[in-house]
């Protein structure tokens, strides 16, 4: 067990980062290698001009307005989940550095920072997690089950697991961000530092599952993060 934990603390993170970026690069290359089509595959009505179409695609990516029009329950589920995810990603900046500028501006001490993070983090976590259960339930019932593959379930379970281990740290322990900073900076500079202790055992599970997600990301449908924008531009060509 010690050995496995050691590996996940100090060795596999490098692999995860390498596979994540390398894999995305590989997928981009594969897309690029495919022959483009010479026809216009536009859907109408479409905005005028290149800039207008790019803007329209971007607005759609961030609001999913097209989905809102045709499927409201799915929009609520999907939008809230992705919003929670975005907030969580922003929040995780605190694991590596901190919003020093913001805290200075607000003149908040450590206690206030912690409380703010606790409230905001919990809300974001709920926004992320609850819709995941809805998306899971959708796959079990109704016609979406025809489309669902084991891959889809695996991803949803993986995300739920990551969220739950995150909740564990947030709600059952009091994480010292300094410890995290030291640990991650150590990893980044190859000068390994002791793993955080304030987080209890949940940290290593959380960290390990995130690494699995990173390794898997480029080879899964999560590539919709990047490819979605491309296919939207095809429909506005």
């Amino acid at each position: 067990m010690e050995v496995v934990a050691f590996l996940f603390y100090y060795i596999t993170p490098y692999i995860a980062v390498a596979v994540f970026f390398g894999g995305i690069g590989y997928r981009l290359y594969r897309w690029w290698k495919r022959p483009p089509v010479t026809s216009h595959l536009s859907l109408y009505p479409r905005p005028r001009g290149r800039a207008g179409r790019l803007l329209d695609a971007l607005v759609d990516v961030f609001t999913l307005k097209g989905l809102l029009r045709v499927n409201k329950p799915l929009w609520i589920g999907g939008f809230v989940m992705h919003l929670g995810l975005l907030l969580i990603l922003i929040g995780h900046i605190r694991a590596f550095t901190d919003f020093y500028f913001l805290w200075d501006l607000l003149q908040w001490g450590e206690e206030q920072q912690h409380q703010f993070s606790a409230v905001a983090g919990t809300i974001a976590g709920i926004l992320f997690t609850v819709p995941l259960f809805y998306l899971l339930a959708r796959r079990w019932s109704g016609p979406v089950k025809w489309l669902s593959t084991p891959e889809d379930y695996f991803l949803l379970f993986l995300l739920i697991t990551i969220a739950l281990t995150g909740f564990h740290m947030r709600l059952l322990t009091r994480v010292a961000v300094d410890e995290l900073h030291t640990f991650f900076r150590g990893l980044a500079t190859f000068q390994w530092q002791p793993a955080p202790t304030s987080t209890g055992t949940a940290f290593i599970y959380h960290f390990a599952f995130v690494q699995i997600l990173m390794v898997y990301f480029p080879f899964s449908k999560l590539m919709h993060t990047i490819g979605g924008m491309f296919s939207k531009m095809v429909a506005r060509s």
């Binding site: 897309w31 989905l67 045709v70 799915l74 016609p143 979406v144 889809d152 449908k221 919709h224």
Partner: peptide
């Protein structure tokens, strides 16, 4: 290829 890789099988 985008279709293959991007479709999240959401069923919309």
């Amino acid at each position: 290829q985008y279709y293959y890789d991007v479709c999240v099988r959401c069923g919309a």
